[in-house]
């Protein structure tokens, strides 16, 4: 008797809560850590990036308008659902990054914990970063961090899941929406994370995942006037690209989180809400004291 036919998975993009193929019809072959063929992934084009920004903008009002407590609950649920798919994530991270099962398992565990960590920050960041300011007049004066808007992010190239979560979670936890370009050579765990997000309570459009090349999509996102901030972490080590994107981002004075010289070690717990605050605006209110 013939063996069962393989049911191979089609890895697609994640835009506005749906899983479309690339508008361009392109795909590219993804290899595992030893160079063997793994799967074909969608090769996102500039029009996919454009559509993703539209979806992110549409989702922004709802997500930023949700209470911080509610956002925390929603992000915690992402961790719950990832936990349920833990084995799948471990296999995919192992295939993508190599380095042994123990290391892959540790990375997946850390990625799940990172969601929990940032879920906790949603309703605490205002206390830590906000302030009541003494002013010389009869006013209450206080400052609070507010989400910047639509953020484009280039995910780290090496750490396919933990690095991605470490970039995306701080952006969305404060109420931003994000268009993230995955690691070009290791995109598959990001697609599985999209499936988790699609079945969690995160509204469609809050996180949009494009598999493809940072050098191709980055300029369109950095140029885009409806993108309010850009995270260049994924351009680490490629100074020319990083500089080009920073110059382009200057046109509408985007907030830029500059790329590090080399990709950082993501396994360590972040030292405070630095990444969250990179994508916040400070709102200061002068309120008459009344009698």
């Amino acid at each position: 008797m013939a063996g069962r036919l393989d049911v191979r998975k089609t890895y697609k993009l994640y835009i506005g809560g749906a899983f479309p193929r690339s508008e361009s019809g392109r795909s590219y072959a993804v290899a595992d850590s030893r160079g063997r063929f793994l799967a074909n992934a969608s090769h996102a084009s500039r029009k996919d990036a454009r559509d993703a920004v539209v979806a992110a903008r549409k989702a922004f009002d709802g997500w930023s308008g949700a209470t911080a407590y509610n956002r925390g609950q929603v992000l915690y649920r992402v961790a719950e659902l990832m936990e349920g798919r833990r084995d799948q994530f471990v296999e995919e991270v192992l295939a993508a990054e190599g380095g042994g099962r123990a290391k892959a398992t540790a990375a997946v565990d850390a990625a799940i914990d990172r969601w929990v960590w940032y879920a906790g920050w949603t309703d605490k960041v205002a206390q830590v970063a906000g302030s009541a300011n003494p002013v010389a007049g009869p006013y209450f004066n206080f400052s609070t961090p507010e989400p910047t808007g639509v953020v484009a992010a280039l995910a780290p190239q090496s750490s396919s899941l933990l690095g991605l979560v470490s970039v995306v979670a701080p952006i969305v936890c404060v109420g931003n929406t994000v268009v993230v370009v995955t690691s070009a050579d290791r995109p598959l765990p990001a697609v599985t994370l999209s499936e988790v997000l699609a079945t969690s309570d995160v509204p469609g459009g809050v996180v949009n995942v494009l598999t493809g090349h940072a050098a191709e999509l980055g300029p369109w996102l950095a140029d885009h006037l409806d993108v309010n901030a850009i995270d260049l972490t994924g351009a680490a080590g490629d100074t020319d690209l990083a500089v080009d994107l920073e110059v382009r981002a200057a046109e509408n004075t985007k907030r830029v989180l500059r790329s590090p010289a080399a990709e950082p070690d993501w396994t360590a717990t972040p030292d405070g809400p630095r990444r969250i605050l990179a994508f916040c605006e400070t709102k200061t209110v002068w309120h008459p004291m009344g009698v």
Binding site: V53, D223, L225, D226
Partner: peptide, 8 residues
Amino acid sequence: GRYHSADR
């Protein structure tokens, strides 16, 4: 050559 924003 830059995508535009409804803010503008």
